[in-house]
Design a protein around this nucleic acid. Structure first.
Lengths: 163, 163
DNA sequence: TTCGTTAGCGTAATATCATTACATTTTATT
DNA sequence: AATAAAATGTAATGATATTACGCTAACGAA
């Protein structure tokens, strides 16, 4: 049986965050080159901002940050950037909270499986291939052809549930 | 291994829809009585409208229908009704499409597992207890306490994929 | 029954999230 | 350099959801 992987855990205080933003951008650059996609300045900036939170971030939060760090930017611009990044598999969208989060494993395309803390609004991404397969099998049984799976589990993260 | 149940399938042309709305309301009434919840006229009306579509329906669609069939109603009223119905387990919210759908099995509380057709925007609800358990186990492994699971699979329903 | 409390609803305003349409600029290609 | 395609600028608007506050109806206790 395939093991469940933790793609990105709830962010701990001791991890070096700056370096993980950097690493995400580096991965993104190499992926985009490989695939002939253009990681422009704007797109890279948005990716950095998403990663800077190390957790779900709303489009308008990003907009605010952009306006602070770049010149004036309108919503549309942010959404375009986000669309690109999603398309490239560099970030995921969390439907249940209208937010976006960097993907720590953008090389292997996968469905999003998230544990979302309702208290601190942090999130962890996991990947359980078994679930993906089972869901695929279930869908097939009713003649449904799967294009994308979204799994979002709401609850309390370790640190919030110990409070 | 627990079997996967189809809670509500993609709606077929030959099923008697009127009777299934009726049955949903009847179930809802008995559930609310049992639990000491009040299924008011407004709430029942909203439940009927949700069921009348036999598929995901947006809050503002419901609002329009309310305005047609009842007097003037404002968004707030609809959302309050929807919140109640969700709370009672009588409908589910589909986060990926900002829509609401009646639950055909409101007696047994369960997480929502949906197959959503991107073409005709219909949806089927299934319940695979195995997935629910597995996800729970995965969460436990990282110390996450689950309160709610949402699974939304996007793709093509049988009739749309044969086109 | 009456009183006090709570739950439900009416109403308006506003917050939040996302897209459309079209002009302009940049980049890649020839 | 000329052209086409992709990316971005800009404004307006659309779609979804919540807050705040006041009134009324229902419910339980005295």
């Amino acid at each position: 049986m395939a093991a469940t992987r933790v793609i990105s855990d709830f962010s701990s205080k001791k991890h070096n965050h700056k370096s993980c933003v950097k690493s995400a951008v580096k991965k993104a650059e190499s992926i985009c080159i490989d695939r002939g996609m253009r990681l422009t300045r704007l797109r890279r900036k948005i990716l950095e901002l998403v990663w800077s939170r190390h957790g779900p971030l709303g489009a308008y939060d990003i907009l605010q940050l952009m306006n602070k760090e770049e010149g004036k930017v309108l919503p549309n611009t942010v959404y375009r950037g986000l669309d690109f990044l999603i398309e490239a598999g560099l970030i995921h969208r969390l439907d249940s909270m209208n937010a976006f989060m960097g993907c720590a494993d953008p090389v292997s395309r996968h469905s999003g499986q998230f544990l979302i803390c309702r208290s601190c609004e942090s999130a962890a991404e996991i990947h359980d291939a078994g679930i993906e397969q089972t869901l695929g099998r279930d869908a097939k049984r009713v003649g449904f052809s799967v294009e994308q799976q979204t799994i979002e589990v709401l609850g309390l993260c370790p640190s919030c549930s110990s409070d």
